[in-house]
Amino acid sequence: MQDQNHDEETANTSRRIVTFEQFIVDTFTRIGEDGVERAVDQPDQIGGGGTYAIIGSRMFVPPSRLGMIIDYTPSTLPQKMRDTLNEYGQEMWVFRERGDGHPTARAVNRYNGQTRGFEYLTKPLLLTPHSLLSTRLANPLPSTLHIISYPAPRSEGILSEVQQLKRERGWDPMIVWEPEEESLEVLERVARDIDLIGPNHHEVLRLFSPAISPSPTEEELKEVYINACKRLVSVNPKIGVVIRCGHLGCCYASTPPSRSEVMVKWVQAYWNPQRRGWTEGVVKDPTGAGNAFMGGLAAALDSGKSLDEGVIWGSVAASFTIEQDGLPMITNIDGDGDELWNGEDPWERVREMKRDMGMI
Score class of each variant (00 low, 15 high):
234 S>N: 13
203 E>V: 01
77 L>D: 02
3 D>Q: 07
330 I>G: 07
28 F>I: 03
201 H>Q: 12
256 P>A: 02
208 F>P: 01
313 W>C: 02
107 A>C: 05
323 E>I: 06
205 L>A: 00
106 R>Q: 11
39 A>R: 12
69 I>E: 04
197 I>T: 06
246 G>C: 06
233 V>W: 05
117 G>W: 11
353 M>H: 02
97 E>V: 08
213 S>W: 11
143 S>R: 10
221 L>S: 10
283 V>S: 06
227 N>T: 09
174 M>C: 00
196 L>A: 01
346 P>C: 04
230 K>N: 05
359 M>C: 09
7 D>N: 04
292 A>C: 06
93 W>Q: 01
3 D>S: 05
118 F>S: 08
247 H>G: 01
263 M>A: 12
104 T>G: 01
215 S>R: 11
47 G>V: 14
22 Q>P: 00
248 L>R: 03
156 E>Y: 06
262 V>K: 02
321 T>C: 14
106 R>T: 10
269 A>I: 07
337 G>Q: 07
287 T>A: 07
288 G>Q: 12
107 A>V: 05
135 T>W: 09
333 I>R: 07
126 L>M: 14
326 G>K: 09
127 L>R: 11
80 K>L: 09
65 R>V: 03
283 V>Q: 08
117 G>L: 12
74 P>A: 11
123 K>P: 08
118 F>Q: 12
179 P>K: 02
